[in-house]
Design a binder for these strands. Structure first.
Lengths: 126, 126
DNA sequence: CAGTATCCGAAAGGATACTG
DNA sequence: CAGTATCCTTTCGGATACTG
């Protein structure tokens, strides 16, 4: 039965797009491309800890969504440049607001967590 | 606003907070509490598709972070109310901006994906 | 009603080896 | 250099059963 509002479907779709942010690496990659074009190896070095596999998968996903462009230069050795699109830039701007919230409330959240853990855990930190 | 300081640890912490968004259920739960206090069973019904287990885990996490409060009423049968804190409300405001971005560009992203998939599909380039 | 405990399949993601 | 392909561990999350 269609008890759900039509908004629910849209809501889920929006959620799936927001999942771009929650993904472990996307924002890091996009952030690195904010001011400059980077090639694959530069991204690999810039994003600490990402594996080659995950960098590739992340870039493919972002390219698919139209958030960045992938440009292959026919040279030897090969060179592939990645750059944000206009769409990607607008996303970054929106995310910046959220990142600012996170930065502002980081200490408060950490403090909340410590208090919660202290209250609930039989053993406090040694 | 260069938020990309070499302080990797802070950056990761912010990322972990942003992961609240990417988490499958957190935003849905928080969204339901925007305008009103809800009890466990009401949330369970309001958030379509969530399991009892995940609702509990999600609520505990959000309570730990100080984004909502959990109030147990000593009655029979028991009644537990969940309400957003001020901190939770400010998060919701920041997320709203991102949700607006997602809504605005939803069609465009879907279109990009279709084009990308069409290019790479079985009947791709000659 | 509001959970907790347990099991299990699915999916994410790292490490490694190989290639045009 | 810029990837693919493969394996394998860890984590996520749904279904189910039980409890104060």
């Amino acid at each position: 039965m269609g008890g759900d509002e039509p908004d629910d479907e849209v809501c889920r779709q929006v959620l799936r797009i927001l999942a771009l942010i929650g993904d472990k690496w996307s924002i890091l990659v996009i952030g690195q491309l904010r001011d400059r074009t980077l090639r694959f190896s530069e991204l690999h070095r810039a994003v600490t800890g990402i594996s080659q596999r995950m960098l590739t998968l992340t870039l493919r996903q972002l390219e698919r969504d139209g958030l960045l462009t992938r440009t292959v230069h026919p040279s030897v050795p090969p060179r592939v440049d990645y750059a944000l699109t206009a769409l990607g830039t607008t996303l970054l701007d929106s995310v910046a607001a959220l990142a600012e919230w996170a930065t502002t409330h980081r200490q408060e959240i950490n403090s909340n967590r410590r208090r919660y853990d202290a209250t609930r855990s039989p053993r406090a930190q040694p």
